[in-house]
Design a protein around this nucleic acid. Structure first.
Length: 281
DNA sequence: GGCCAGGCCTCGC
DNA sequence: GCGAGGCATGGC
């Protein structure tokens, strides 16, 4: 087994795991986080002094994980650009220091956030896991020091559109997708018939990508913005769900102009994380 | 056991 | 264009 050690500022994988932007990244203990993403199992060991061990090769780190965890962006200068009069956001950014916006697989992001609507994050996690267990490929983690034993016995990749064969609506009902089952079916059709492709979405400008996504069955403004922010790295996007609306109502008198930030999505993630995990306000 | 969850669709106006 | 109602299921 190989691993790499990297020194990274402003990077907190535990907060990222708690942040609700991805559903397959989990804290193992105080110094270890694991995820299945991009078809691979990855574990991160927190070594201290901004040093992190990644359970992958140097090539994989450079070609996959550096981009996935958005490690080349200067978050410190983005945080420094926060409106000094915005006390709530300033507190949220301090509290959430180390969160980065993941660039997740587009198809996984679409299916996951279709499932996410009107459910709690633990419940989304359960449903997404079942989806992978049913349709994904088995992955066997190979780890040694400085890593620890994985949480679960078995891991499965998130299936690609091509890997989804012989599925029916019943399969999605069986995993607990509820009324979203037909939305999932429709999304799979869109990809398998190539009405939607990775390159079409990647190459679309923001307006076009938003239009393509909201045309999908079961994808409205909120889910489309999540897909754009967490799957297409469109940082101007600012998804507003019931939590965000509550923040805006309580702390901003019902309206919030996020358009002043080029990376509004990062601010959104700070606020969302602060509201959900900091119980004292 | 009741309430709410990273909302969206359809219908009626 | 906009508001109301309905929605399957899991966690707490």
């Amino acid at each position: 087994m190989s691993f790499v050690i990297k020194n990274i500022e402003c990077f907190d994988p535990i907060k990222i795991a708690e942040s609700g932007q991805a559903f397959r990244i989990h804290q193992i203990d105080d110094t270890h986080v694991e995820t299945v993403a991009l078809g691979k199992y990855l574990q991160i060991a927190i070594l201290g002094d901004n040093n992190y061990a990644f359970s992958c090769t140097e090539d994989e780190f450079n070609s996959l994980w550096s981009k996935y965890f958005d490690l080349t962006r200067d978050y410190k200068s983005i945080i420094a650009g926060i409106d000094p009069d915005d006390e709530y956001l300033k507190a949220a950014a301090i509290y959430g220091y180390g969160i980065r916006i993941l660039k997740q697989d587009i198809f996984e992001t679409i299916i996951s956030f279709i499932i996410s609507q009107r459910r709690s994050i633990p419940s989304i996690t359960t449903c997404v896991d079942r989806f992978c267990e049913k349709f994904g490929k088995k992955i066997t983690p190979k780890l040694s020091d400085p890593f620890v034993s994985p949480i679960k016995n078995e891991y499965y990749s998130f299936p690609t559109p091509k890997e989804l064969n012989n599925w029916s609506i019943k399969d999605f009902n069986d995993i607990g997708a509820g009324y979203r089952s037909e939305y999932i079916a429709s999304a799979i059709h869109d990809f398998q018939e190539e009405k939607l492709t990775y390159s079409l979405l990647e190459n679309a400008d923001d307006d076009k990508a938003y239009e393509l996504l909201t045309k999908m069955h079961g994808v409205g403004p909120k889910v489309a913005n999540c897909i754009m922010l967490f799957g297409l790295a469109r940082f101007t996007r600012f998804p507003i769900d019931v939590w965000m609306q509550r923040i805006i109502d309580r702390h901003y008198n019902g309206s919030y102009d996020y358009s002043i930030y080029k990376e509004a999505g990062i601010m959104q993630q700070f606020m969302f994380y602060y509201e959900r995990t900091e119980k004292t306000h």
